[in-house]
Design a protein around this nucleic acid. Structure first.
Lengths: 225, 225
DNA sequence: ACCGGCGCTGAGGGCACCCTGAGAATTCCT
DNA sequence: AGGAATTCTCAGGGTGCCCTCAGCGCCGGT
């Protein structure tokens, strides 16, 4: 398992390298953001550990650029900041885990193993289907450049559909996951909301991303229709 | 996105529920390990949040049992313990993330979103017979590059045939598996649908993948005809 | 070649499935 | 509390799907 560690403080970087090597990882080092980004792009690593405060490019920026390039290598952010909002920001930016200094190599190694077990995440922070995009963090939905106002229920249903874009989703599954009604199930409410969604995400744009498959369910076109 | 929270301290459980609901999650609660395991098994949740110290079954045990049952629902462990080895143990046991008390709902929600981003169910394989392909997940049927629209019944029948491609399938077997009529069986309906299928998957392409074997049944050519 | 049976097909009725507008019920906000 | 937004229920209506039926062609046997 090859890991890239980007950390400008050389003594800490060396210590992390030795600590992870002791746990069986192969570790490369980079000492600034530009080098780190370059290596992460080219090096085919199984995971990347990023310090936040770096010369030239911050850890945030590295992560953001990698994700913008559709590179879903597991990223673990490492930082002295422990404000909760920093943490939330890092995760919503596309990082997969977050660890605050000081930390132990045992924990770092365990979290890396957990990340590697999951494998590279083939999913971006912002969910997309063609020119349709949905950001679970900021709750923003767009069709191309124009943003769309959705109610909570509409948003939840579209989120579920866009996570399964290209797949057929039965109405019963939508009812299970988007609604909380366990027993008194009326599938009609799903149909009603399918109609609401079409009026907001399809009709104004002359598209038809949300298709009904009679007897099967709904399918959101992976290419946005 | 539906989340199960297993936490025995009721006030905390309620607070977490409200906090996550404010972030847009649908939250179910369980107050002991046995309930938690049961719900996690049955409830089709998108993620599970487990307290470690629980009556009846610990969070560790719940996680261990779920994984032993091949249930890969994303699990986040929540605990007052913050010893580094506890953390490492939880992660190596198959949990996907670990958070120590006290924590904030903003962080919990962000980490759940990161988990959901990663957690994607593996798709069923695409079935093939020559240049004929059928995808049970997206419900897409193709002959070469051109996609074909099938009704629910046509799709079900083709799916059954393509799974038995190259083999002879009696009409009675199709009736049993594609239709649910147990007794009042009229085999003619199978013949009718064989005709529908031929008109859609064979005739437009000048092929004949679906052959009739008089007195025996039908056979879908394994090489697509 | 004739005949019996098997399979194919076009037509059509019925109904299940889905969509939609209206309005009640509930929640949220001021 | 009052009003607005959201969520949900309900009934009506359209249409596509499913199945039945009857007639005919075709195949295989004698």
């Amino acid at each position: 398992m090859r890991v890239l560690v980007v950390e400008d403080e050389r003594r800490l970087a060396g210590a992390v390298q030795r600590g992870l090597q002791a746990e069986g990882f192969a570790v490369d080092l980079a000492y600034d953001g530009a080098d780190g980004l370059h290596l992460a792009r080219e090096g085919a690593y199984d995971a990347v550990v990023l310090d936040l405060m770096l010369p030239k490019l911050s850890g945030y920026q590295i992560c953001e650029r990698l994700r913008a390039e559709e590179n879903w290598v597991p990223v673990l952010i490492l930082s002295a900041k422990d404000g909760e909002y920093d943490q939330a920001d890092g995760l919503d930016l596309g990082a997969d885990d977050y660890l605050t200094k000081p930390f132990s190599y045992v924990v770092l190694a365990a979290r890396l193993r957990a990340l590697l077990r999951r494998g590279a995440a083939p999913r971006p922070a912002v969910l997309r289907a063609g020119d349709l995009s949905l950001d679970p963090g900021s709750r923003v939905v767009r069709r191309g450049e124009t943003s769309i106002e959705l109610t909570a229920r509409e948003f939840a249903m579209l989120e579920y559909l866009i996570r399964r874009a290209g797949q057929v989703v039965p109405k019963s599954e939508l009812l299970d996951h988007v609604w909380e009604t366990s027993d008194t199930a009326d599938l009609n409410v799903v149909e009603v909301y399918a109609g609401y969604l079409r009026r907001k995400i399809d009709a104004p744009f002359g598209r038809s991303a949300l298709r009904t498959l009679r007897g099967a369910g709904y399918r959101l076109a992976a290419d946005g229709g």
